[in-house]
C-alpha cells in the first residue's frame, strides 16, 4: 500500500511539469529545491538535534565557490559543483570542530552559527574576490554543458532529482548505525557518550554532510538565477526558510522538509492568489511568513514532530 502510494507520487511528480503551465512548473521546482535545502538542515538539525540558525553560511559558500570558480577561473560549472560541495562540507566541519570543541550546545550552537553566517555575509560584502555588495553575474549561455537550460523543465527535473537524493540520504539515516548514533546524541548526549559513541566526531561528520548538501543547493540556486549577492547567499532569510520548512513539516523525519516545503509553497501561492483578488493585500510575502512564524510557535509548543507526525499517527491507527 505504501509502496503503491510512493510510486504514484513519483509518477505524478514526473508528469506534473508536462501537464501544467510553465509558471506552475517553476513553483514545483522551487518546492523541490526548498525541500532539498530543508533536508540538509534536517540532517543536522532534525536527526542529530543540532539546531542551526546559520545554514545560509553553507548555502552561500556553495553558491560563491562555484560562481567564483566559474566566472573568475573559467571552470565548467558541473566541475565546480563538487568543489562547492567540498567547500560546504569543509566549512560545516570547521564550524562544528570549533563550536563543539568549545562545548557549545543547544541555543549557543544555534546563535554561533548565526554569527558565522553574518561574518561570511559581511566579508562577502567587502571582499574583492566576491565583487562585494554588487554581487556576481554568471554569463548566460543556455547549454546543458554550462549547467543552464533553455527549457526550464530540465531545471525542474534537476531539483526533483536533488530532492530524491536528499530523501534517500534521510532514509539511509533512519536505517544506518550512523543515523542511530545521531538520534542517540539528539535524545541524550551524555547517555550517548556513556554508550561509547564518539559524540564529537559524529557531530562533526553530520555537520560536514549537511554543509555539503546545503552548498550543493547554493550552486543550484546560482545556476538557476545566474546571480548571487551577499544578502541572498548569507542572509538570515535563507537560514530561517530551511529551519521553518523542516520544523513545520517535521524535524527528524524523512518527509518533514518536503511536507513543510509543499505547505509553505501552497500558502505562498494562495496568498498570491488572494492578493490578485483583493488588491489591499498587495504585499504577499510578509503574509505567508506571518502564518509560518505563528505555525512555528504552535508546532514547537504543541506538535514537536511537525505535520509528518500526524500522517504517521493515522497510519498506525
Amino acid at each position: 500500500m505504501r509502496h503503491l502510494a510512493l510510486a504514484a507520487a513519483l509518477l505524478a511528480a514526473v508528469v506534473y511539469p508536462l501537464l501544467v503551465p510553465n509558471y506552475l512548473a517553476t513553483v514545483g521546482m522551487l518546492m523541490f529545491f526548498t525541500a532539498f535545502i530543508g533536508q540538509s538542515w534536517n540532517i543536522s538539525g532534525g536527526f542529530a538535534g543540532q539546531t542551526s540558525f546559520g545554514h545560509a553560511a553553507f548555502f552561500g559558500v556553495g553558491a560563491y565557490t562555484s560562481t567564483i570558480l566559474q566566472v573568475t577561473y573559467g571552470w565548467n560549472p558541473w566541475l565546480a559543483w563538487p568543489a562547492a560541495m567540498a567547500m560546504g562540507g569543509l566549512v560545516g566541519a570547521g564550524i562544528a570542530v570549533l563550536s563543539f570543541r568549545a562545548g557549545l550546545r543547544g541555543s549557543y550552537f544555534a546563535l554561533i552559527t548565526l554569527a558565522f553566517a553574518e561574518v561570511f555575509r559581511i566579508a562577502a560584502n567587502s571582499a574583492s574576490i566576491t565583487r562585494g555588495g554588487l554581487g556576481m553575474l554568471i554569463k548566460a549561455d543556455q547549454r546543458p554543458i554550462n549547467f543552464q537550460f533553455k527549457d526550464q523543465i530540465w531545471i525542474y527535473y534537476l531539483a526533483f532529482a536533488l530532492c530524491l537524493v536528499s530523501l534517500l540520504i534521510a532514509w539511509w539515516l533512519t536505517r544506518s548505525r550512523f543515523g542511530a548514533r545521531l538520534v542517540a546524541i539528539r535524545e541524550n548526549e551524555d547517555a550517548a557518550r556513556a554508550l561509547g559513541i564518539d559524540v564529537f566526531t559524529e557531530k562533526v561528520k553530520v555537520l560536514a554532510l549537511s554543509g555539503a548538501m546545503c552548498a550543493a543547493g547554493g550552486t543550484f540556486y546560482a545556476q538557476k538565477y545566474l546571480y548571487i549577492d551577499p544578502n541572498i547567499a548569507f542572509g538570515i532569510d535563507k537560514s530561517v526558510e530551511m529551519l521553518l520548512v523542516t520544523m513545520v513539516g517535521g524535524a527528524g523525519t524523512i518527509f518533514g522538509p518536503l511536507i513543510g516545503s509543499i505547505a509553505l509553497t501552497t500558502i505562498n501561492e494562495l496568498t498570491r492568489a488572494a492578493a490578485s483578488v483583493f488588491p489591499a493585500l498587495k504585499n504577499v510575502q510578509p503574509l505567508s511568513l506571518i502564518v509560518y512564524g505563528a505555525m512555528l510557535v504552535l508546532i514547537v509548543a504543541r506538535l514537536p514532530d511537525g505535520f509528518a507526525s500526524l500522517l504517521g499517527r493515522r497510519r498506525h491507527a
Partner: peptide
C-alpha cells in the same frame, strides 16, 4: 532550551513581517 529559542524566533518572524 532550543525550543524556547525557536518560539521566540517564531515571534520575531511574525513581528518583522
Amino acid at each position: 532550551d532550543e525550543n524556547i529559542l525557536l518560539i521566540t524566533l517564531g515571534v520575531s518572524i511574525v513581528a518583522d513581517n
